[in-house]
Nucleic acid binder design. Structure first.
Lengths: 110, 110
DNA sequence: CCAATCGTCAACCAATCGGTTGAATAACGC
DNA sequence: GCGTTATTCAACCGATTGGTTGACGATTGG
C-alpha cells in the first residue's frame, strides 16, 4: 500500500539522512566512516542507512566485513519530476545548488 | 533548529497531502471542497492543510467563513534544487510528469 | 433571530520515529 | 585460535504522526 514516493520524501525529511547523501556524493563509504562525523551511535546511523536503502536512495554492498554505501540517484528522479511539475522552474541552477550545499555543510551536522 | 527543507519533505511524504497539492494545481479551493474526495474527517484534512501551510507549500486566506487554499510553489524550488544536484538529470521532462500525475490520480485517493 | 454551514480546537488513540544500550554475528589479521 | 573490528539485532524509551470524536466560535442566508 505504501508508495515509493512516500519512502523517498520521508527519507529526505531527516537532516541526518540528507547529510549522509551529501557525503556519499563525494565518494562511496563504509558504514563506520559514514557514522564518524555524527554525534550519535553507530546503530542509529545503521538504521538511517536502511531507511535510505528502502527508499532506493542508496545501495549497500558487503565486501568482507565492510558494507559499502553508494549513492543511487535514480530514485530521486521520480521525486524530482514530481516536484518540478509544480513550479515551472527555470532550468536547473547548479550554482544555486552548490551554494545551498555549502550552507548546509556549514551547519552543525546534528 | 528545524530546517525548512525538513518541513517540505515531511509534508510531501504523505500521499493525502500530495493529492491535495495536485488538486490545488487545478484551482484554488475551500477547505470543505478539498476534503470532499477523501474518506476521512474534515478535521483530519484541516490538519493536513496546516502542515502544508507551515511547510510553505500552500497559503490560506479566509474570506467570510470560507478559507481558500492556494498552491504556493515557491517552497518547492529550494527542495527541487536540492534534489536535482544529485542526479545530473536531463532537462525536465514534463511528459513524464503528466504520465505520473495521471497514474497517481488513477489510484484510490486513500 | 436562528438554524445551518465552515472550519478549528482539544482530548484521545494506536502506530511509527529517532534515538539509546547491550548482546550477537561475521570477518579480519596476527 | 583469538582478540579486534564492522555491522546488525533486540528491547526499550519518549516524542511525533495521522487519525478519530465532540464541542466550539464565526459567519451566513432566509
Amino acid at each position: 500500500m505504501e508508495n515509493r514516493l512516500d519512502l523517498v520524501f520521508a527519507a529526505l525529511s531527516d537532516p541526518t539522512r540528507r547529510a549522509i547523501l551529501t557525503m556519499l556524493l563525494e565518494d562511496d563509504m563504509a558504514v563506520t566512516d559514514v557514522a564518524e562525523p555524527f554525534e550519535m551511535s553507530l546503530a542509529a546511523i545503521s538504521k538511517h542507512l536502511t531507511i535510505l536503502t528502502r527508499a532506493g536512495l542508496i545501495t549497500q554492498e558487503k565486501r568482507g566485513r565492510v558494507k559499502w554505501c553508494k549513492l543511487d540517484p535514480s530514485a530521486l528522479r521520480e521525486a524530482s519530476v514530481w516536484m518540478q511539475g509544480f513550479g515551472q522552474f527555470e532550468p536547473v541552477n547548479l550554482d544555486a545548488f552548490e551554494r545551498f550545499l555549502e550552507e548546509e555543510l556549514r551547519e552543525d551536522p546534528n
